[in-house]
Design a protein around this nucleic acid. Structure first.
Length: 380
DNA sequence: AATGAACCCAACCGCAATACC
DNA sequence: TGGTATTGCGGTTGGGTTCAT
């Protein structure tokens, strides 16, 4: 330890690379390959240390590097892998061809991390932020003051669950519904309010529903005929339409896992042994197995619907997309006439903040269209 | 138009792991 | 087997750019 950094040698240049330096490095590597980074700069006629050359090559000059914005599915993959691997940027990069660990790390810190924070999700644990959950207790107090047990029971019946669902979740859900005065004919625009809190509720509710069904697979619960299978609810769509739901679908999955399964629980492995499409299969079944190559990202399979749009295209394109797909106009918007090709058992909400001006939101606006698949039996 | 704040990302730093002698 | 060199990796920095006032 304490070894003197190679770049501290006299006369070695630091800082941004010039085009001439880049060309020298490229020319040399094309001719001789990159064997010994220590001796490479001298042989290539560069006043740089080997480390600097290696970084420049691996992070910028390498011919197989993919430049430009991260695609929708790349971003989703990063989120999923990060929920499993943590800050193992090189491991994540290994599964994103053409992307470097440095690039992914930067993108995470400048875009994804902030977005998760806005969603009320801790970017480290991928769990809901505790500070925001504290807010729920405040809301809960309000709820207690205004809501009777019968109302909670009504909600319980409404969603077809009689017992064992976390009462706090019920309170949140009921509070969510009552505070927003949900009704069959109400515009979804209410979802534009308090977006972050509602995202919290949706995550928790959907996750609990998923758990509920898994815990009671053989119980005949009192549910509406329109009640879709919970795996479809939680995934936001059936496998055949998973492509339309992309980010949110996968995130519900990973969130569900982490929200619902305590570290000591064996339930996670049991759960995912029954749901082989979950990207956390490997971890759930074998915590020490880091071979993720076998992942089957249900949300990434055949990303057709969204890919037909240029998510990262011009502003006009984005606006068009917003209008056509994501944000039906108030005049034409009804909850039962969603323009999306999602499964008909669910209602499709967009929580886009139309006033967003944040650069991050511009760049990756799609992700802010957090699409909640809330089943019809929620009464929305 | 000026200026300070915020954002972004290429590059650097230092530690750990691995390779080599 | 132990010491040294090299490589890999994750965290951090700093300077350029964009945004807000």
């Amino acid at each position: 330890m304490g070894r003197t950094p190679c770049c501290e040698k006299e006369g070695l240049k630091k800082g941004p690379w010039t085009p001439e330096e880049d060309q020298k490095l490229i020319d040399y590597i094309q001719k001789h390959g990159y064997g010994n980074w220590r001796t490479l700069p001298k042989n290539a006629g560069l006043q740089r240390c080997g480390k600097s050359c290696r970084l420049r090559w691996t992070n910028y000059l390498r011919p197989d590097i993919k430049r430009g914005r991260f695609s929708f599915e790349e971003e989703e993959t990063i989120i999923q892998l990060h929920s499993i691997l943590g800050n193992k940027w090189s491991a994540i990069a290994a599964r994103l061809p053409g992307r470097t660990d440095n690039e992914i790390k930067n993108y995470w810190n400048t875009h994804i991390r902030k977005r998760l924070l806005r969603m009320g999700i801790d970017p480290v644990t991928h769990n809901p932020r505790l500070d925001l959950l504290d807010l729920s207790s405040i809301l809960g107090s309000s709820f207690h003051a205004n809501t009777s047990n019968s109302q909670m029971n009504n909600f319980s019946r409404l969603i077809g669950i009689h017992n064992s669902i976390n009462p706090e979740v019920l309170r949140l859900a009921n509070s969510f519904m009552s505070s927003n005065n949900l009704s069959q004919h109400q515009s979804p625009n209410f979802l534009l309010q308090n977006v972050e809190n509602q995202e919290q509720y949706s995550h928790v509710i959907i996750s609990q529903l998923q758990l509920q069904q898994q815990q009671q697979p053989h119980h005949q619960i009192d549910q509406s005929p329109a009640l879709p299978p919970l795996h479809e609810v939680s995934a936001g769509c059936s496998p055949s339409t998973a492509t339309s739901c992309g980010r949110e679908a996968s995130y519900y999955y990973s969130s569900a896992h982490q929200l619902l399964f305590p570290p000591s629980s064996n339930f996670a492995s049991d759960f995912y042994s029954q749901n082989s499409q979950h990207p956390n299969d490997e971890m759930a079944s074998n915590n020490n197995n880091n071979n993720l190559n076998a992942f089957n990202y249900s949300s990434l399979e055949g990303v057709d619907e969204f890919q037909s749009y240029d998510f990262y295209g011009s502003h006009e394109d984005q606006e068009q997309f917003r209008e056509q797909i994501m944000e039906p106009s108030p005049e034409t918007s009804t909850l039962n006439s969603s323009p999306t090709p999602l499964n008909s058992n669910s209602t499709y909400f967009s929580t886009a903040n139309g006033n967003g001006t944040d650069q991050d939101e511009k760049e990756s606006y799609c992700s802010q269209f957090l699409k909640f698949e809330i089943p019809d039996f929620f009464g929305c």
